[in-house]
Write a protein that binds this DNA or RNA. Structure first.
Length: 237
DNA sequence: GTCGGAGGCCTTTTTACTTCA
DNA sequence: CATGAAGTAAAAAGGCCTCCG
């Protein structure tokens, strides 16, 4: 190090102007720390520019009665302190964003679970072998009643008449359970085992993942999913 | 291409000050 | 109240790196 600063040697001798009385007073009791006035000037300059041009550094040093080297070191330390504070601020922001994203993820998980239950119910309705006495759902019965009134009472339950695979995607069956039907509960099906449910859905479309996979989702993926055009009923198309 | 000076960043040391048992 | 250890913040030193002439 080419320059060594001695507080005892006083740097004011190199200054054309004598230090303020408060500064001198403070210096007597604290030969190392800069005075409030000096700090204020340095801070003001730092707000303008965090790196000093050599010319400005000399000028500021002259004005404050400090060595240019002291001004340079002060700016260096100030930049380090500012950077440290900035890191803290950035961390706080990141933490807030993470918390927001995590709660959103949980909400989406719940929503997904609800939708899976709806799917389960639909598949249950469609694929369950129908017993003669139960071949018509209540709604189907209602539809049939409508049809019967139109056809003179001759039409039979659709399931009974046409138990083909094409029926499985019958529009009116889907119409029974709209996507905003939130009255469906897992207990209705005795399906409390999430794994079984998910396996079922995997079989259904081969695209949905397990809870373990959810944990591996990138947040961006999550956001993308939440904003995609995908609708649950696309499952059928 | 390389050499040397200037200046920046990072880490560590020194010093003054505060807090607390 | 006095005192000393521990903690903290600021000033400064030293090393290393990059840039530029």
């Amino acid at each position: 190090m080419e320059y060594t600063y001695s507080a005892e040697a006083e740097t004011y001798t190199s200054s054309s102007t004598s230090p303020p009385s408060a500064m001198r007073k403070k210096r007597n009791s604290n030969t190392r720390r800069f005075s409030d006035e000096q700090i204020k000037s340095l801070e003001t300059m730092f707000e303008t520019e965090s790196r000093l041009e050599p010319r400005k550094k000399l000028q500021l040093a002259r004005e404050l009665g400090l060595q240019p080297r002291q001004v340079a070191i002060w700016f260096q330390n100030k930049r380090a302190r500012w950077k440290s504070k900035q890191l803290e601020r950035d961390y706080t922001i990141l933490q807030t964003n993470y918390n927001t994203l995590a709660s959103r993820f949980e909400a989406l998980k719940k929503e997904k679970q609800t939708l899976l239950i709806q799917l389960q119910k639909l598949n249950h309705l469609i694929q369950k072998p129908m017993e003669p006495s139960q071949r018509c759902t209540q709604v189907e019965a209602a539809n049939i009643m409508d049809s019967e009134s139109e056809n003179g009472g001759t039409m039979k339950c659709e399931a009974e008449m046409k138990p083909s695979p094409s029926m499985e995607r019958s529009e009116h069956v889907l119409g029974v359970l709209s996507d905003d039907d939130t009255s469906i509960k897992v207990e209705d099906f005795g399906l409390e085992d999430e794994t079984g449910l998910l396996n079922f859905v995997k079989h259904a479309d081969g695209s949905l993942s397990s809870p373990e996979d959810w944990g591996a989702f990138e947040s961006n993926d999550l956001l993308d999913q939440s904003t995609s055009d995908y609708q649950w009923w696309d499952f059928w198309s």
